[in-house]
Design a protein around this nucleic acid. Structure first.
Lengths: 337, 337
DNA sequence: CTGAAAGCGCTTACAG
DNA sequence: CTGAAAGCGCTTACAG
């Protein structure tokens, strides 16, 4: 072993070094690493020992270049702080790890320009798949369409996705919320929308259905992404200042809803008796807040699993699927509304 | 342009394709891409056009293999959900993007085994640097020490780091909290510690200093990582059930503190009059909660900037620094304690 | 089940 | 400022 280390002379051991100490060809070592079942027992044992003796760590740059498979997946999200996607991403990373793949993380900040740059960067690294959230410009859609990498959009169902989509209809979710609000007898909703395309779709669905059901024009407010807890303070004080008749606030996220509850309570209001609040996303806090928060549950873990399963199918077969998987959503009535 | 596309015959354009259409050598195109200043104006223009015409996207796998620089940095954190590191990571990702580098994200789940696997995976991809949070086993420390990649530990200052460390003394932070609690006249702290090595250090610092200052033995509780909002419920009900005389709860994170405030208020207690609460981390909610949360601020953005600056220095010079950067911490007294 | 050899698409001294 | 050529460390038909 000492001799092996010595002849290396400081450089990293390569496949050839392992092959030499195991007295086999490089091809056989490569096979052992990528598909152990295909080499003979005795040979496998020698190679195993040689790898241990040399401290060999494969070079995936070289491997990827030769095989044109990087075993890397790009995951593109807007933010990390106060993000609705974190649980989904966490499941994705875990599932990818289990499949021997690593993830390249990109933060788009809801910018189509940044998104396009990150997609190019991902393609530069010859990722096997790109998982994207958020809007794409026309050129990027075209790039995605031509891409040899599997292109996945998650948490949404675009009209004509360039690749695969795993998500749900945000517009339908908005409509469902409207029906729920009517069924509970609320009359004056205040709709708080974040400045993202998905949030906008939910808002549109809500307002459309609300009108259809004969509701009076709702009041509205907007917040920027990431919609932090703190923006709730401004929204609430605006409502008071402008003397809105609101009996329920429809929030674009659970953290915003949580913030509104805190503000309302601090102002001496009871939730939901004096002011009801709805969230979106069913984050952990929604079920644990006092009062517990009425919200819409999205099965992020399922989105992640469907996405990764598609990537593994693609890795195995090489075929590019092109369809949409609707995981739907579920309104959860709790105490806050 | 159509001809250029045609002769490609479906495959991705390579550096050679660009070179051919620009009527220069591949070497010159490579120089243009990596250091435009070094090629002549007129040549540069021709290459620029050729790149646009062919739709060339460089292959960083090949580039990395040839140059043994991957322009990729591995970032290893325990979790994404309810994590104290997210703001730090977000700054890191932004800074790395600006420097033309991408990030490989690894989730360790506080497991040294997972951490070791991820470090091997990162080395397989020949990352330029590894940024790690959390404990390392002996073999991994040795691996990090030998690693050609820059090894950075952040949010902590280990005794004898294998590479660079950017963080602060958790034990000192715990001591500071003890002094603050004494100065405010609290007598019966309840210390809630998460099951991580850093949280444990803060707890030890607190208890040590508290005893030194003559305090009575504090009561204690532990929570698991990630310490979600919901664990606050159990901690609070245990305190009540066991009839602790607590006048202040020292929490391991702001979200835990927030949960305790909500629980205490729901039980009819006033914070801080009936029960004071302290957090840790100074997340956005800490300053926006009602009451605002007394906590300890860590300058995560500075940690990120120092780390990325070191990586850029390393990329430029190739030298491996080996030292510790203490960014310290700052106790922020607000309303909750 | 195993080996020899070509090739993946870049970068980088070296020479001019 | 530019080009020819070797080499980075793997994988994968092809042959046996």
């Amino acid at each position: 072993m000492a001799e092996v280390m010595n002849e290396l002379n400081g450089r990293n051991p390569t496949l050839d070094d392992v092959a030499r100490t195991a007295r086999v060809s490089a091809a056989t070592v490569s096979r052992f690493i990528n598909n152990p079942a295909v080499v003979a027992q005795a040979t496998a044992e020698r190679i195993r020992e040689a790898i241990a003796a040399t401290g060999y760590i494969p070079n995936l740059l070289a491997g990827g270049l030769a095989s044109s498979k990087s075993k890397m997946v790009a995951v593109l999200i807007p933010h990390l702080v106060d993000s609705m996607f974190n649980a989904t991403i966490e499941t994705m990373v875990d599932e990818l790890s289990a499949a021997g793949m690593n993830v390249m993380l990109g933060l788009t900040g809801v910018s189509t320009v940044r998104t396009a740059e990150l997609i190019r960067a991902a393609l530069s690294r010859r990722v096997d798949a790109i998982i994207s959230t958020g809007p794409l410009d026309a050129a990027t859609i075209e790039l995605a369409r031509r891409s040899p990498a599997l292109f996945l959009q998650v948490w949404e169902l675009p009209e004509d996705p360039p690749g695969l989509a795993v998500g749900f209809s945000h517009k339908d979710a908005g409509r469902d919320i409207a029906r729920f609000v009517v069924s509970r007898g609320y009359r004056n909703p205040h709709v708080v929308t974040a400045d993202g395309s998905r949030a906008q779709l939910r808002r549109d669905g809500f307002v459309e259905e609300w009108r259809t059901l004969g509701g009076a024009e709702p009041t509205e407010a907007t917040v920027t992404i990431p919609s932090t807890f703190g923006q709730a303070r401004r929204v609430f004080s605006d409502m008071r200042r402008l003397d809105y008749p609101s009996d329920i606030v429809i929030c674009g996220s659970d953290s915003l809803a949580q913030g509104l509850i805190v503000e309302a309570q601090a102002a001496g209001l009871r939730v939901p008796e004096d002011l009801a609040v709805m969230g979106f996303g069913n984050s952990a806090i929604a079920g644990e807040m006092r009062p517990t928060i009425t919200t819409v549950d999205i099965d992020g873990a399922r989105i992640a699993r469907e996405a990764i399963a598609a990537i593994r199918r693609h890795a195995a077969s090489g075929e590019l699927e092109h369809r949409s998987i609707d995981v739907s959503f579920r309104l959860i009535a709790r105490e806050s509304a």
